[in-house]
Design a protein around this nucleic acid. Structure first.
Lengths: 121, 121
DNA sequence: TGTATAAGTCTCTTTTAGAGACCGTATCAT
DNA sequence: ATGATACGGTCTCTAAAAGAGACTTATACA
């Protein structure tokens, strides 16, 4: 456990990079959205209406850069672009879902804590 | 898997809250730092030199608000404040470490992907 | 008397995110 | 022919968030 932290202190720590992805707020949503199968840019935009096109582009680039998703352009007119999980990206879904399960399971307890905190503050 | 996403579309989704914590960039470091045992404010600040006092305070408040850590004031002169993981906070360490393990295991593959992306761009 | 420590807070600046108009090309309906 | 629509983005402007670092109050110690 401790040795994890030691690694994280490093400026260009690999763990930091990954947490930054999760931290990016939208990337997890994108990964989950791609889980059933490949998806095109505007389809993703429609599925995730809360994310601006600007951030969607940026998030997709980030994920592509780290090899979690693959971008494939089809020479149709107008060109269409398909995004798909890579094996690496798919392998992240397991740990990610574990976290989400924890969140769902802990939601009531967190809500209670928040109420208590608000009442006392 | 899909039903996770459906829940996440909601504006005040509990899962979103949790991911926002992870997203907060520093909270995970703090949780890991508290894993061995309780720790005081300045001790945390010294252990995590990259985080400003301002953000440390803010992150600690957020974690306290959600019941992941507990804040206890000792009436010494000057007063000292100790932060400790709650049971709830400790229960998050499991999923969190699973994610970190993934990150460490995948780091080489991600590095390769980055190099490839940079070369082609 | 001067310095150090405790746990923060305050202000200022820089970075990041969000809103939403805009781009060129091509298809379809009128 | 004319206009609306769709594709996958980019661009600019504004608002929110984060980082740097000085400052606070009270106390202890040299």
């Amino acid at each position: 456990m401790r040795d994890m932290l030691d690694q994280m202190d490093l400026a260009n720590c690999p763990v930091r990079h990954v947490l930054d992805h999760i931290a990016a707020k939208w990337t997890t949503l994108i990964l989950l959205e791609l889980e059933p199968g490949p998806c095109r840019f505007n389809a993703l935009a429609r599925s995730l209406p809360d994310i601006s096109r600007r951030m969607l582009t940026q998030s997709l680039r980030d994920l592509e850069r780290d090899g979690l998703i693959a971008r494939q352009v089809f020479p149709t007119k107008p060109p269409s672009v398909e995004y798909a999980l890579t094996d690496l990206g798919r392998s992240l879904l397991g740990p990610l879902c574990a976290l989400i399960d924890w969140a769902k399971a802990s939601a009531p307890e967190i809500a209670t804590a928040r109420a208590a905190f608000a009442a006392q503050a």
